[in-house]
Every structure is written in structure tokens, then in C-alpha cells.
Amino acid sequence: MLVRVKLYRNHESLFKEFDVSLEPNQTVLDILYTLKENYDPTLSFRSMCRAGICGTCGVKVNAKPVLACKTKVRELEDPITIEPLDNLPIIKDLVVDHSALIERLKKLRIWYEPLGNNLQIFKTNSMVEKSFECIACGLCDASCPVFLTNQGFGGPMSFLRIYKLTQDPRNSKKEESLLRIKNAYIQLCTHCKNCSMVCPLGLMPESIIRFEEAELIKKGLISQSLTNSFDFF
């Protein structure tokens, strides 16, 4: 099978092609290790858990953001084209700088500010549970077209992760969390659903963004507006 990998060397991008013998049950991460060990030891990429938990092995495969460790060869068309994620600065080859993801989390202050008393019981719903389950892989942000025109956008990853703070009675700053969502330009979301289609855990960030927008409209913090809706994948 022909594998094309986009390399980033000396501030220039180039595609390098490899003819690799692959088994259907192998993953894209297996491909990358095979290339590094047998073809090009200078190839750079990230991986840690190999179990779809840490979220570090995100790459773009055949134009779609995926976790390399969860993507099987049998799911892909020949040739397989592997590139770095979009919307994040490239450090080298398939390694991108995740600093922007972290900065967006910090800007929205996505952490608990506890109550004075200890609340032991908290009933969740399915959407709140999805907010808890995000592994911060950044695939959703890498698929988001809004970042092409506005870097101040909060992004689907941050909007997904902050949702629990707006619903959890153990957080003393629920209203402040809603205001931060508003100030992160949530209404710029095009609702193209790219983020939901690429999420490796099926957490549906676009649906949660709709819930957040509805809450903001209900409280009079934003006005209802029509947005473009289109799919990239």
C-alpha cells in the first residue's frame, strides 16, 4: 500500500511517499512507527498511550483529523495520506504546537471554583457527561473553519469542556462561566458539525454549543441569529 506523509523541514512542506506492506488490523500509528523504524528515522510524530485516551497522536489522514492509534488501515482508501493537524502551528513533520488549545482553556477559566460547603450529590444528564469525558485531543478545533478568520473564537473543545461548569451546582461561578462563553464569540460557530464528526469519542461538541447558545439566548445575553451551516467532511 502506498503511504504519503507530509513532512515539514526547514520551514517548508513536502510529501514523501513510501510503499509499505500493511495488515488490515494495523493502525495509522503502526504505520508511523514502521516508517520511523524501517524507512526514515528522522520522522517526527507524537504518541503515548496507544489506547485512544491521551489524545496526543492526532493527525490528518486522507483530509480528516483522527487519532492515529484508533484509525485502522482497513477503514482507509489507498493511498493513505498523513498530514499534521490544521489550525495549529507546525513544529516538525506531524508534531504541532498545542499551546493555543491550552491558552483557550485558560482564557475561559475551565476549572471549578468550589462552593463554601461540600455538595456530595450531583445528578448529571448525558450532555454534561460528554463534557466530562473530553480528552482534549484538539481534533475538533483542528476541523473548525471559524479559526481561519477569527483566532479569538473559543473553539469547540473549550465550549465542550466548559459546559459542565454551567450545569454543575458544585461550581460557584456558573453565571460567570456563561458570560465567558458569550465573550468567546460562541455565535461565530457555523454549525457545520465538523467537530462532532471528527470527535474520536463521539461527544458531539456542536450539539453542546447549541445548548449553550440556547441558554445564553434564554438569559438575554445574546440574540438569536441565523448562521451558515455547511459540512467540510
Rank of each mutant, 00 (worst) to 15 (best):
A51I: 08
I91W: 14
K218I: 11
N150A: 07
V73K: 11
A142G: 11
K16G: 05
S229R: 13
K60Q: 10
K16L: 13
E212V: 02
L35C: 04
E83N: 06
A63P: 01
D97I: 01
K60E: 12
L108T: 15
N171T: 07
G202S: 00
T81N: 00
P205Y: 13
P89D: 11
C134F: 11
K123F: 13
L139D: 00
V128L: 10
C199L: 04
S172H: 02
F211Q: 04
L201R: 13
E23N: 15
C195H: 09
P24A: 09
T190W: 02
L115H: 05
S131Q: 01
A63T: 10
Q151F: 13
E12K: 09
Y112L: 05
E212F: 10
T71H: 02
E129F: 04
S177H: 04
I90D: 08
G155R: 11
R180K: 05
K182Y: 14
C57N: 02
E175K: 09
N10S: 00
I91G: 12
L94G: 13
S44V: 14
E176F: 07
K6A: 08
C140L: 02
S47I: 00
I121K: 07
N62A: 11
L160R: 03
V198T: 04
I222C: 02
E23F: 09
S126V: 13
F230S: 06
M48H: 08
D40G: 09
P205G: 01
I53T: 09
V28N: 14
T190L: 00
N62G: 05
C54W: 07
E215K: 12
S99M: 11
D97K: 05
Q26M: 14
Q151H: 04
G220Y: 14
P145R: 12
E12R: 04
K64T: 11
D93T: 04
D86N: 15
S196I: 00
G154S: 10
S158T: 06
E212K: 01
K174E: 04
R161F: 11
P156E: 03
D19I: 08
I102A: 09
C189H: 05
N87M: 00
D19A: 02
I135N: 03
T42F: 02
V20H: 05
W111C: 06
L22S: 06
L160V: 12
H191I: 00
R210I: 03
N228P: 01
Q187N: 15
L178Y: 01
R180W: 06
F122G: 05
K218E: 12
S207P: 06
N150G: 07
Q167S: 03
S196C: 02
L67A: 12
N10K: 08
G220H: 03
L105N: 01
E133A: 15
L101R: 06
E75H: 14
D40P: 11
L201A: 12
S143V: 12
C199D: 00
I80R: 02
E75T: 05
D40E: 14
